[in-house]
Each structure stands twice: as C-alpha cells, then as structure tokens.
Design a protein around this nucleic acid. Structure first.
Lengths: 217, 217
DNA sequence: AGCCCGCCTCTAACGACGTTAGGGAATCTA
DNA sequence: TAGATTCCCTAACGTCGTTAGAGGCGGGCT
C-alpha cells in the first residue's frame, strides 16, 4: 500500500490498540508499514503532527456519520446521541480520549458537526450564544468522563488494576467517610455506561433549564 | 533542604511552570535539587509515581481548603465554588489539567472532599446515588474544560498560537458554516472564565432539574 | 538515447531520555 | 568498635525522536 500521512495515522491507530499510547513509537509504526523510521518523516513533520492526525481520524469518525435531527425527534435525544457517538469513537481505541484531549481538530467533517449542533439548538429555541457556549459543555463533560474512565480501566495495569471497586472500597476509612464508602460503587464513573449516561442527562437537562430561566426572564 | 518524595514533587511542580510537561525530565528536577538523576530513584519508584505525587499535590491544594457550606448558603453556590477551586488549582500550573487527568488521587484530603460533596448534596435533598453520580459530572466537566483550555492557551506555541480567535475564524468557511463563523468567539471555551462559568451553571442547573424530575415522579 | 529532477527510502548517527548496577561515604545501631 | 542502613555518586544500557546525507527509481525534457 502506498504510504501517505493518512495511511500512517490509520496504522498508528491500529497499533495503538495493542501497545497503548506510551508504547507507540515511530520505529514500531514504520516496521508495521514495512519501512524504516526516518521514512515517516518524509510524510509527516514530526510525531506531534502524527498524533494530531490520529485525533482527527477519531474525531471525524464520530462527526461524519452525524445527520440532522429527523423530524419529530427532540434536540435532547439528538444532542445526547452526538455525545454518545463521540464517546464511542474515543472508547474504540485504547487511550483514545488522551489522544483526542487538547487537540483542536481542523477538518471539514468537524466544522459540519459544530454547525449542525449550533443549528439544531438554535432551531430548538436557544440563542446562538447559548448554543455556542452550551454544546461545548456537553463536549467537555464527555471528554472528561471518558479520559477518567479509560485511565481507570487501562490495560496498562496487567492483572493488578488498582481501580477495582474492591480496592477503592478498601482505601477509604468507612468510619470517617461513611457516605464515600457506601457510594464507592458509583463514584468516579467506575460503572461505565450508566455513570456516563447519568451525567449526560444532567448536562442536557441543564441546557434546557438554562434556556427556560432566560425565557422566564 | 532534605530530599524526600514530597520535596521532589514540589520541585517538579515548580519546574513544570517553566518547561511544561514535555520538558520535565528527571535530570532537570535532580539538577534543581543539587543532585544527580539516579538519586531521585532512591526516593521515588519511577517517573509515573512522581507524576502521581504531583497530581496529588495539585488536587489536595484544592481539596484541603474546602469547608462545609456555611448556614444559609445554597448547595449550588457551594458546589460551583468547589469546581472553581479545582479549576484554579489546575490552572495555577502549566499543563496542570494534563497532569491531573486520569490520575486517581488517593489522599485523605480528597476523601474528605468527596465525603463533603456527598453529604452536602444529600443534605440538600439528593439521594445518595444521585449525589454519587452527580458530582462526578461536575468534576468531569471541569477537567474536560480545563484540559481543552490549557491546550489552546499553551505556552508551548511561541508567538504563533494557532488558536487565536482570528485564526479560528479564518479556518471556517463562513458560507457553508455561517453559525460557526458567527459564534467562533464563544466556541471551545476560548473566552476562558466566562465559558467555564456558563457550562458550570448548566451542570448545576442540571443536577437540580434531575432531582426535581425524580421528586415529581 | 541520454539526462535531469523530484520523489521516496535508506544507513548512520546524534543527543536526550528513563532507568539500573554497583560502589562509597556518612550516619545510626548494637 | 563493628556492622547495618541511608543516601548519593559514576558509569552505562537500551530506547526514543529526529536529522544529515547518500542513492535508487521513475517520468518528462532536450
């Protein structure tokens, strides 16, 4: 296969699942492409640019299957679905959230997704500035949650993941922190999808509440 | 000064502000302590453990000045203040959010903070499980927002930060993405505190709305 | 045909990194 | 005083991202 920057990024993403972000080296990527490491620098300026390209691929994966809300569907469901898709895109690669976090992705599909978010919210009765400041809140929540989740469930720990519910429960002194001990199952998104969904609902409800407060003056 | 793991972590945090996370090397930290790099390994198992200790310091900085809500103050204000303090702790160090993200901090002050969050919310009428799943949402939003913010304003770019409002505006095709172009100032938390505050309000309003929905059945 | 030039890959190597091995001085303990 | 413990050192290993510079391979010009 002909090598170019996108092929390199796709290969890197595939290897990422095996070795994790810390194990992802230029030499390894090159080897997988049947080439030596310096060759990559003909196609890619440096490793950071490659990481940006990987982030773009992940982001675009979620953004490009985004459709305008069908008639009769609520903006709440649509927005939540967008957050779920973004989360799934991150979860579908080891350390995906870490790769994505803090990378501004400049790609047409993403602009389209942003525009679609703004339009959907505005059509639902939000001010443009409400929409423009509100939907990043969904985004930031999603990123924050997924980073934390992937860190805790990371395959980097072999068989001794320190974040099992039992270990977490053992860490806290149930005498001094009774509520924490009692709720340790729920804490820190350790229950995966359910924890994410709960927080997502909160953010969406918050958007609605913020709009209603403005409308009531 | 006598060297121990905490002194090392404090030194590392101070140096972090100058050189950034990518420039923070064991040799540099050792040099600042008047010592050679291998010496650090007498006090610290490896660099990851040191990074965890740094994250703990940042987190504790926010957690330990946390007080129970004074009489007459609302849980909304108290919770928002806690989020602001956490954010300030991250912002007060270059790459602070990246250091914190994904590190489970196991320290008494943090357990205290968690317990205080749970108790405050429960006293305000939340179920324990609502509280245990709700306050991480605030946390995750705060982390997500601050990571993104610090990435965009990073001093790693010299004088050519690609995330200035003008550059972002120039990137989007105003014909095809009119709302995005129009709202580019607000997007992605580029307006710092105001953007954070807006999202924070949304999350807090969302918590209240979620509770009300349950109460109404 | 002969030539050149841009494209792409190579070998070799540089400097920096995290980390380990092993030695030695000082300080505490018995 | 003898031995153990604590803390720091020098030296070095293997790996990383990255650069320099040479060369092969192809298509388009003269």
């Amino acid at each position: 296969m002909k090598i170019n920057s996108e092929v390199i990024a796709r290969t890197a993403l595939r290897l990422l699942d095996d070795v994790g972000l810390d194990g992802l080296t230029m030499r390894l990527i090159a080897q997988d492409l049947g080439v030596r490491a310096p060759t990559l620098y003909w196609h890619v300026k440096n490793k950071q640019e490659l990481l940006d390209a990987m982030a773009t691929l992940v982001y675009v994966e979620a953004a490009e299957r985004l459709e305008p809300p069908p008639d009769g569907s609520s903006w709440e469901d649509w927005l939540a679905d967008w957050a779920r898709q973004l989360r799934q895109a991150m979860l579908s690669h080891r350390d995906g959230a870490r790769v994505l976090a803090g990378t501004y992705v400049n790609h047409e599909a993403v602009h389209r997704a942003v525009e679609l978010n703004l339009r959907t919210l505005r059509d639902a009765g939000f001010t443009l500035s409400e929409a423009a400041r509100g939907f990043p809140a969904v985004l930031h929540y999603t990123i924050g949650h997924t980073i934390e989740e992937q860190a805790h469930t990371s395959a980097a720990y072999g068989d001794d993941n320190p974040y099992t519910p039992e270990r977490l429960a053992a860490m806290v002194d149930a005498e001094r922190f009774p509520l924490t001990a009692q709720a340790s199952t729920y804490l820190l998104g350790m229950d995966g999808d359910a924890g994410f969904e709960y927080g997502l609902r909160i953010v969406v409800l918050g958007l609605r509440a913020a709009r209603q407060e403005r409308e009531r003056g």
